[in-house]
């Protein structure tokens, strides 16, 4: 089953700390390489914590790790990074602010 919902991208402490090691370091990749999904949505789409999932938006696609998180149903979390920004919509609706927290995505287990 395909999960559909809003992608919420935000800073995390681990992302902010490891980005200074190097943007190409394994530590940074580990800090950004996941999407947070709530337990109910995971059960509904038969996704387990740690599974690889394909996340698709109108802007792009990434394959990353699913992580069980305390987020709302139909709302998914990713740390700010070049991975999340493959998905984030560049449409600003005249405000200058792109869709960091408003982009619709679809998640499928791979």
């Amino acid at each position: 089953m395909v999960l559909t919902g809003i992608l919420n991208t935000a800073r995390t402490l681990k992302q902010g700390t490891t980005m200074h090691i190097s943007k190409t370091s394994p530590e940074y990749l580990d800090a950004i390489n996941y999407i947070g999904i709530c337990a109910q949505d995971m059960a509904r789409a038969d996704i387990s914590d740690g599974d690889r999932v394909a996340v698709v938006s109108a802007s792009g696609e990434v394959t990353i790790r699913a992580k069980k998180m305390d987020v709302q149903e139909g709302a998914f979390f990713m740390p700010v990074s070049y991975l999340a920004n493959r998905l984030v919509s560049a449409q600003t609706h005249g405000t200058g602010v792109p869709g960091f927290k408003t982009t619709m995505v679809e998640i499928t287990k791979v």
Binding site: S59, G60, Y82, N85, V88, A90, T92, V97, P98
Partner: peptide, 27 residues
């Protein structure tokens, strides 16, 4: 983001910023 996603600039100077990590890739 608007300038880049409309592909308007013909040259860019980036001073102490990381657009390739922090901006939507399509921009």
């Amino acid at each position: 983001v608007d300038l880049l996603s409309r592909k308007e600039p013909d040259a860019a100077l980036i001073v102490a910023a990381e657009p390739m990590d922090h901006l939507p890739y399509t921009a």
